[in-house]
């Protein structure tokens, strides 16, 4: 995996300590445009910590972050968002009482032009239309964007959450367990959204426990164990058994 071009998004030698606990130990990771990376590891391997560092929620104790070759220090996830790094967290999800459009535009509301807009009044109709278009663009058909999320099925909710993240991401999208609790067909839809994001040139970081999904959709797999990267290789180097062995530590992957 020796691409000469500057990586889209990169962490170098990142460590994270919580008191005396070392959650992440000298981890480096780079992703290129149009690449899908699978980030796997057992519970407690450091995946969540790495996601938090990548998404800007936590700063690493040591190490550096680069976006398109420029060193960045995220003060908040909001800063990362604005720079084009979008994260779909495992359980933060959506606001169930709000409409599809309100969720798609949450934190990025559009205002009516003119004085009323300056006073903070929302361009609701425009957002209803645009939300639908944005979701359609990434391959999601949701019946009505004025319906509230609580009226949707679990699969539709997840589709909206992912569609929201993908449609806003301009550079990198981090998906933390996006196929959890989904049926086979819905998970398949999520994977095709990931492929579409890749085709658009986004860098996708896909975190999952469902190894067949990881093997199916990723270009490269990074395995974490006990806070360290124990493998970082093209997906074609792995089969299901070998990947599982690497995660659990039964196989030393070189």
């Amino acid at each position: 995996m020796n691409q000469k071009s500057t990586p889209l998004y990169e962490v170098r030698n990142a460590s994270k300590h919580y008191g005396s606990v070392v959650a992440l130990d000298d981890v480096s990771l780079a992703i290129h445009p149009g690449e899908v990376i699978g980030l796997v590891g057992d519970n407690g391997a450091g995946k969540s910590t790495l996601v938090k560092i990548l998404s800007g929620a936590h700063a690493p104790s040591h190490g550096e972050i680069f976006l398109e070759g420029v060193k960045r220090e995220w003060a908040s996830p909001h800063e990362a968002l604005e720079a084009g790094v979008e994260t779909l967290y495992q359980d933060s999800g959506l606001a169930p009482h709000l409409s599809v459009a309100a969720n798609v535009f949450l934190g990025r509301e559009e205002m009516i032009p003119g004085v009323l807009g300056k006073l903070g009044f929302l361009a609701q109709k425009k957002m209803d239309v645009d939300a639908h278009a944005n979701l359609e663009k990434v391959g999601i058909a949701v019946p009505q964007s004025s319906r509230s999320i609580s009226q949707l099925s679990g699969g539709q909710r997840q589709a909206v959450a992912i569609g929201r993240a993908v449609s806003w991401a301009s550079k990198v999208i981090i998906l933390d367990e996006p196929t959890n609790h989904l049926g086979a067909r819905q998970a398949g839809e999520v994977l095709s959204i990931i492929r579409r994001a890749k085709a658009q040139g986004l860098g996708v970081i896909f975190i999952s426990h469902t190894l067949p999904h990881v093997l199916e959709v990723t270009d490269r797999i990074v395995v974490l164990r006990l806070g360290k990267v124990v493998a970082d290789a093209p997906t074609s180097n792995f089969d299901a058994e070998e990947l599982l062995g690497t995660i659990t530590g039964l196989i030393e992957h070189k």
């Binding site: 909001h78 604005e82 994260t87 933060s92 999800g93 606001a95 009482h97 709000l98 934190g107």
Partner: peptide, 13 residues
């Protein structure tokens, strides 16, 4: 949004 899901609100910036 905050009353509905504060985590989602925070994640949305």
């Amino acid at each position: 949004a905050i009353g509905s899901n504060p985590f989602a609100a925070r994640a949305a910036g």
